[in-house]
Design a protein around this nucleic acid. Structure first.
Length: 410
RNA sequence: GCAGGUGUCGCCAAGUGGUUAAGGCUCCGGUUUGUGGUACCGGCACUCGUGGGUUCAAGUCCCAUCAUCUGCCCCA
């Protein structure tokens, strides 16, 4: 039997209802804040990602779904959303429409990784980007939208972690200082850290090995290396969060896996056990150099992305709309009635039996499938023009109703 | 990419080398025609993830492969 490829899954039933709720919640929030949807291609030139995400990142090194098409172009299934959005921003000259460009997107992303709880090879993100906005107030708006999103879904038990990576020169100075520190104890740390030292020294800081962590306790922190400008932005961001009543936790070891981040970076993490080790459900930050690096103007930007699968795992259940089942001995008459009812009722699903099965079977089906209502529409009702309606959950029956009374009850 | 666990019907699950692969739930049909999830009857794995091998004999042993789970790496 042919199965879905490793790391992919079918979404249906209750999960699908939860996904719809997640997407509807996000879309409402984005519309209210004046963000516009953008749909970019699912595959792009491979070069876009190696330039945007960074040659040293794990994503580019070992996780991309890259292939050559029939004309030998190297293409890649997008591993994240920001690169494509920025490419579209530049290509379509969005800067002429006025800045910042406030955009949101959703859709599948692809990374060739070992599948696990909360980790898939095809996974889905919803993200927002504000391109061409330097003021820290846009960071605050973006972060607030993430926090509101979580709240609107009724999720608790999430913590906002933030850190600053500073501007390019602060970051360079810090990395230089960090490398000096790391070099002293390079022989005593794990192999991964020795590799990180070469490739991405920042990542050493969130190493999981306890012995290594002991050593890193004395490492210089990035905050001390922020230059005046970066320091000022960092202060304003924190003040703003407090003003907005957003609780946060400074995490000096939060460095993120993509190379394009600058200044503020943040993650919303859950304490729930349901996601095993994958406890980050929403993450983002500022990327002031990315647009320029991809050939656009010098536009500072900020954004985040959330993982739909991870959020969905945290949501237990969702309310389905109530349903009505038409019990009839004539499918065509039931179909005509269903059509009419669908036009004239709101927020109720109208269903019927398509085959001429027995009365009792139809009623049992309605009960088993958890329909709230059964509407009797057999020859007797059709002749009299009066309906019988039953609330199956409350076991209440309403007899001899005319059509308008049926509508009132639903 | 590395280390370990698991794979018998849609779901749960017995089976530990020997004739026709328990059982439960769900599902489908019926118990002569318009009212409740009950009860009763019947149906639903030529096959044990897949492919090889060992054996007179394999769901049961061996190898490979695939899938899945857990930890690491990393990430949403």
């Amino acid at each position: 039997m042919v199965k879905a490829p490793r790391g992919t899954q079918d979404i249906f039933g209750n999960s699908s209802a939860i996904w719809q709720r997640i997407e509807a919640t996000a879309i409402k929030l984005f519309n209210e804040a004046g963000f516009q949807e953008i749909r970019t291609p699912i595959f792009e030139s491979s070069e876009l990602f190696s330039r945007a995400v960074g040659e040293s990142s794990d994503i580019v090194n070992k996780e991309m779904y890259t292939f050559n098409d029939r004309s030998e172009r190297s293409l890649t299934l997008r591993p994240e959303g920001t690169a494509g959005v920025v490419r579209a921003f530049i290509e379509n000259s969005f800067d002429r429409e006025g800045l910042p460009a406030k955009l949101w997107y959703r859709g599948p992303m692809f990374r060739y990784e070992r599948p696990q709880t909360g980790r898939y090879r095809q996974f889905h993100q919803i993200g927002i980007e504000a391109i061409g906005a330097k003021a820290p107030y846009i960071d605050l708006e973006i972060i607030k939208l993430g926090v509101n999103f979580i709240q609107d879904l009724g999720l608790t038990n999430l913590t906002l972690h933030i850190n600053s990576l500073g501007n390019s020169s602060s970051r360079e100075n810090y990395i230089a200082a960090l490398k000096v520190f790391l070099k002293e104890s390079l022989e005593h740390v794990c192999e991964d850290c020795q590799r990180r030292y070469e490739q991405n020294p920042l990542r050493c800081l969130d190493c999981k090995v306890p012995e290594d962590q002991k050593i890193y306790q004395n490492a210089p922190t990035i905050i001390k290396y922020l230059d005046e400008e970066s320091q000022k932005i960092w202060q304003e961001t924190q003040n703003g969060l407090t003003e907005l009543g957003i609780k946060y936790q400074i995490d000096e070891k939060l460095v993120r896996g993509l190379d394009y981040y600058t200044h503020v970076v943040f993650e919303l993490k859950t304490k729930s056990e349901k996601l095993a080790g994958q406890n980050t459900v929403l993450a983002g930050g500022r990327y002031d150099n990315l647009v320029k690096n991809l050939g656009g103007g010098d536009y500072a930007s900020v954004g985040w992305a959330l993982g739909i699968e991870r959020i969905a795992t945290l949501i237990e259940e969702t309310h389905q709309i109530s349903k009505l089942y038409i019990i009839s001995d004539s499918p065509i008459e039931a179909l005509k009635l269903a059509d009419k009812l669908r036009l004239e009722t709101k927020k109720i699903a109208i269903e019927l039996a398509y085959e001429e099965t027995k009365f009792k079977k139809q009623l049992e089906k309605a009960i088993k499938r958890d329909y709230q209502w059964a509407l009797f529409y057999l020859s007797e009702e059709r002749n009299s023009g009066l309906f019988k309606l039953k609330n199956l959950r409350e076991n209440k029956e309403y007899d001899k109703l005319d059509y308008s009374q049926v509508l009132e009850l639903l």
